[in-house]
Amino acid sequence: MITCKRKEKEMENVFYMDHPLIQHKISMLRAVQTGTNEFRKLVEEIAVLMAYEALRDLPTEDVEITTPLETCMTPMLSGKKLAIVPILRAGLGMVNGILTLVPSAKVGHVGLYRDPVTHEPHEYYCKLPEAIGERLILVADPMLATGGSAEAAVDFIKQKGGTNIKFMCIIAAPEGVERLHKKHPDVQIYCGHLDRCLNENAYICPGLGDAGDRIFGTK
């Protein structure tokens, strides 16, 4: 079983993964010699492991099943609607991993780019599944740096009627976690690893470089 823990300021709704497999795979992601194909596979594998924990509170109900031996009542998901919303473009790398666990989930997209001077996000695309207010929404982005993109994405989703939102990232800077939690304390944040800080260019240190470039081979 994957376990989560809180640390730093013990912020409610903020969870850090401590499973050795997740930490090992994140270390492999960081390595400069990790190529595009391996990097992409690692992101998907980490997304599977993290989503397993982030979705542990999905509701279930007992249904009647006939086994080869007898009929019994056994738990299955109770029809809770789920939406995966990656933040473009790097968040796309986590989608297939999450879909491995919940293949019936709907997928939306939020497109943001970061101003190179102010480091603040600007929206260029937002398309969400229908009945978004009735869904559990899992927002995915490998990096939580300044927190601006994550904050803006959650803002957009809430403006469209979404209320039950979780955020999942592979690595984060303390500044990003604090900003997202302060603006949206109701959103559960699942983080693979909390890094040291942001540098002067708002990149996470030690980080892993630009996740989008490394996933899509555009570095």
Rank of each mutant, 00 (worst) to 15 (best):
R196T: 14
T3N: 08
M11K: 09
I22S: 08
G93P: 13
L69H: 09
E70Y: 09
G148D: 15
G176Y: 14
T34A: 00
D213R: 02
A211L: 10
D186C: 04
L55M: 14
H122Q: 11
R56T: 14
F216N: 04
Q23F: 06
L88M: 12
I157H: 06
M143G: 07
I170T: 13
Q33P: 01
L112N: 13
G97M: 09
E45K: 07
L58E: 12
K41T: 15
R30L: 09
Q188A: 14
C72S: 04
A90I: 02
V117I: 15
A105T: 15
V32E: 14
A47F: 10
M94I: 11
L58D: 03
T3A: 02
I157M: 14
R56D: 14
G133A: 01
I2H: 05
L21Q: 13
V177P: 11
H119N: 10
Y203D: 08
I171K: 06
D62M: 10
M50D: 03
P20C: 00
T218L: 04
T36W: 07
F15E: 04
E130C: 02
H109G: 04
A172H: 13
F156E: 11
P103G: 05
L49T: 13
K9M: 04
V107R: 00
M94G: 01
G91V: 00
E200H: 09
E175G: 01
G93H: 10
K25P: 11
E134S: 11
P206L: 07
K41G: 04
T218I: 11
I87P: 07
R135K: 15
L92F: 05
G209E: 14
P116C: 05
V117T: 15
I98Q: 02
I26Q: 06
V14Q: 10
P121W: 05
M17P: 02
G217W: 13
G148Q: 12
K106S: 15
T34P: 02
P206Q: 07
N199H: 10
L69R: 11
Q159K: 09
V14C: 12
A131C: 07
P185A: 04
E120R: 10
D141C: 03
E38M: 05
V177I: 15
E130H: 05
A51H: 08
V32H: 15
I189Y: 04
L136K: 00
N199I: 10
H24I: 05
F156G: 00
S104W: 10
E44D: 06
E10Q: 10
R135L: 06
V32I: 08
G162P: 14
G176Q: 11
N96E: 14
V139A: 02
F39W: 10
V187E: 00
P59K: 07
G162H: 01
K166D: 08
A31K: 11
E178D: 14
K183D: 06
Y203A: 01
P59W: 02
K9V: 04
L194E: 13
K5V: 12
M17V: 11
D186H: 08
P116M: 06
H109D: 07
I171Y: 10
N96C: 02
T34R: 03
I170W: 11
E70H: 07
R135P: 12
A131H: 14
L82H: 00
D141W: 05
G209T: 15
K80R: 13
E53C: 11
P174W: 09
T67K: 03
V107W: 01
G192M: 04
E12L: 03
I132K: 01
G133H: 03
L112V: 13
E8F: 05
K25V: 10
I132E: 03
G133W: 09
E134N: 04
